[in-house]
């Protein structure tokens, strides 16, 4: 059985698969960064005392968290070009979809992280004369980040896996590239096994890293 396998095909198509991998990594990195930035803003707004803003953000977060990711991808793929009145590359529409979607999840993680900092810490910062923003920047966020890093990393691993959904808009990410080779050369078993192995290695090492961080920063 195994004799029927031809793993040389992986080597032969390495540059093509690598390009797919690059796109996956690029998309993950940009979506995590953008999602995180937007997520922090959402979290801070949601915790703010400006109630209409907090409610608006709450609505946004709950709405997006109720949507399947693939629907959000489709949605932005058709919506963004209409909004700005000219065609947009699949990459950007997908990136926007990921950022908007992930921000909803990240904001909840960040909010929990901020809420986990003892209330007395805020009082102590205020008592010293720090403003709200300074207290957030120098006292609350550094502690909150420590509490949320493991969960953020876990969410980012899920995000990496989710990027494979971009095949629906025809982007050549890692999985899609492998799929193209698989059907062209009729070698699905080898290719899918390889894809699984790569995801396993990446995600497993990342989750090991999460565990190490969790132990190191256990307060």
């Amino acid at each position: 059985m195994l004799g029927g396998f031809d793993f040389a095909i992986l080597w032969a198509n390495a540059p093509f698969l690598w390009n797919g991998m690059l796109l996956t990594m690029q998309l993950t990195a940009l979506a995590v960064t953008g999602g995180l930035l937007f997520g922090v803003i959402l979290a801070v707004l949601r915790l703010s005392r400006v109630h209409p803003l907090a409610w608006l953000v709450e609505g946004y977060v709950n709405f997006l968290r109720s949507m399947p990711l693939i629907l959000v991808i489709f949605w932005f793929y058709t919506l963004v070009p209409k909004l700005i009145g000219r065609p947009v590359s699949g990459f950007y529409s997908v990136l926007i979809a990921f950022v908007m979607f992930e921000a909803a999840y990240y904001s909840e993680i960040v909010r929990a992280g901020i809420s986990s900092v003892r209330r007395g810490q805020i009082a102590a910062a205020m008592a010293l004369g720090l403003t709200n923003l300074q207290a957030m920047r120098y006292v609350i966020l550094p502690q909150a980040v420590r509490n949320m890093v493991p969960v953020l990393l876990t969410q980012s691993i899920v995000m990496l896996q989710d990027t494979s959904l971009v095949y629906v808009v025809g982007l050549r990410d890692f999985l899609t590239s492998a799929d193209i080779v698989a059907s062209r050369d009729n070698r699905p078993t080898e290719l899918y096994m390889f894809v699984a192995l790569v995801f396993l290695v990446v995600c497993f090492s990342a989750s090991r890293l999460v565990n190490r961080l969790r132990r190191r920063y256990a307060l």
Binding site: G120, A124, A127, L128, G129, V139
Partner: peptide, 14 residues
Amino acid sequence: RSRIGMVFQNFELF
């Protein structure tokens, strides 16, 4: 507040 010092029950060092 910056002109009034305050010390808390639970220290609240950062």
